[in-house]
């Protein structure tokens, strides 16, 4: 269904075709097609455990699929050599669920790290750039703090500043809203949209927070059971007549998605037969 997968936007930055990936015997993706439009915010949503983080790692080239291709700006990333891949990654920012700040470095040094590693800019320019990035996430005043002194929401904003330090063309957010209080959630929602539009980036947001993701995304993909179940603009998915989409978008506890995770027979578990 490559053509039906295309959103109606002019240019596609990331093109995923027929992606297959499995861990052991468990098939995580079974032929996924995605098109991420340039300059837009695309949300990839799905129930926990569908491998959304894995998908980001596949797009970032950290994992290798068993079949299918991922193209970023027309380059098939799994055909690249390692050094080409590392070169490409400089143009991709990624925000991790935990923030993944370097615990031994201060906030300032964390944001300066990619600049120091990949550029030969003079110290004064690095300082200005870092302060600019920190200002854009509202944490210029927190620059001497260590990561252990930050709240979860602040850590994520610092990580965001680090992710945009090299002005990437593509930025991927892994569950940016999880475990945030309403205020920092609102701040993050605003920041993601703002940075995307102001810096002309392309954003991929992986999330299961339907309301927040739908509120910032231009286009949504719903993934479940290794397949793209539905895609469209938030308004289209809101009106979708599929039971599954309806269950997911409106957070109904039971429906086509079973309540139980596949498990050994309950009786065996209780009687200790399996263990």
């Amino acid at each position: 269904m490559p053509d039906s997968a295309s959103p109606r936007f002019a240019e596609v930055l990331v093109r995923v075709r027929g992606l297959r990936f499995s861990r052991g015997t468990r098939v995580i993706f079974d032929g996924i097609d995605l098109d991420i439009p340039r300059g837009r915010v695309t949300a990839i949503m799905g129930p926990s455990g569908t491998g959304k983080t894995t998908l980001l790692k596949l797009i970032g080239g950290q994992l290798r699929p068993q079949a299918g291709s991922v193209e970023i700006g027309g380059t098939a990333i799994h055909a690249l050599s390692r050094s080409e891949l590392f070169e490409l990654r400089k143009g991709i920012g990624m925000l991790f669920q935990s923030g993944a700040l370097f615990t031994g470095l201060s906030v300032f040094e964390n944001v300066a790290f990619p600049l120091r590693e990949h550029t030969r800019l003079p110290e004064s320019l690095i300082r200005t750039l870092v302060l600019m990035k920190l200002e854009s996430v509202g944490l210029r005043g927190a620059r001497q703090l260590m990561p252990s002194e930050l709240s979860g929401g602040m850590a994520r904003r610092v990580a965001l500043a680090r992710a945009i330090a090299l002005d990437p063309a593509l930025i991927m957010y892994d569950e940016p809203f999880t475990g945030q209080d309403p205020i920092s959630m609102g701040v993050l929602v605003k920041l993601i949209r703002l940075l995307n539009d102001a810096l002309g980036m392309t954003s991929i947001v992986v999330s299961h927070d339907v309301k927040e993701a739908a509120s910032i995304a231009d286009y949504l993909y719903l993934i479940s059971g290794g397949q793209v179940v539905a895609h469209g603009t938030p308004a289209e998915l809101e009106r979708a007549d599929s039971d599954w989409v309806d269950q997911f978008m409106h957070g109904l506890p039971d429906g086509p998605v079973p309540f139980h995770y596949p498990a050994p027979a309950y009786a065996d578990d209780l009687l200790g037969g399996a263990g």
Binding site: R82, F86, M94, F113, E117, R162
Partner: peptide
């Protein structure tokens, strides 16, 4: 090991550092 648990290793890779 700690850097792996906190995803710092992944962060290094995405920044483009081996």
């Amino acid at each position: 090991g700690t850097m792996r648990v906190t995803e710092e290793i992944d962060a290094l890779r995405t920044i483009g550092i081996r």
